[in-house]
């Protein structure tokens, strides 16, 4: 039962964050807007990963496996963007 309550709380937080990102999109422009919307997206996926995808119950290895690919993508982003920004 306790779990159900916490799951519903997480859902509530997720919906609040959704409202926040939509609101922010009307107020912020350019890099600031992008930073906020991506920040909120990372916050939402963090909540989903931690509570709904059981990372709070798993050991280190599983946590690395779950999040490793996300970190790995940074290589692609960093080098591709570096190329386009320095042409």
């Amino acid at each position: 039962m306790q779990k159900t309550v916490s799951f519903v709380f997480v859902w509530f937080a997720l919906v609040l964050l959704l409202a926040a990102t939509v609101t922010a999109s009307f107020m912020l422009k350019g890099p600031a807007g992008l930073a906020v919307s991506l920040g909120i997206a990372f916050g939402k996926s963090g909540l989903i990963y931690w509570h709904y995808m059981h990372l709070n119950e798993e050991e280190g290895l599983q946590r690395i496996a779950a999040l490793g690919a996300g970190a790995w993508l940074l290589i692609l982003f960093a080098f591709v963007c570096a190329d386009y920004l320095t042409r």
Binding site: T21, S25, L28, G33, S37, A41
Partner: peptide, 23 residues
């Protein structure tokens, strides 16, 4: 199966701001 479902959700969580909310 739930893990898969949540990941599809997470992907949408990123697609939404990137596609709809670029300002």
């Amino acid at each position: 199966a739930g893990l898969y479902w949540h990941l599809v959700d997470v992907i949408w969580v990123f697609l939404y701001p990137i596609l709809y909310l670029a300002r």
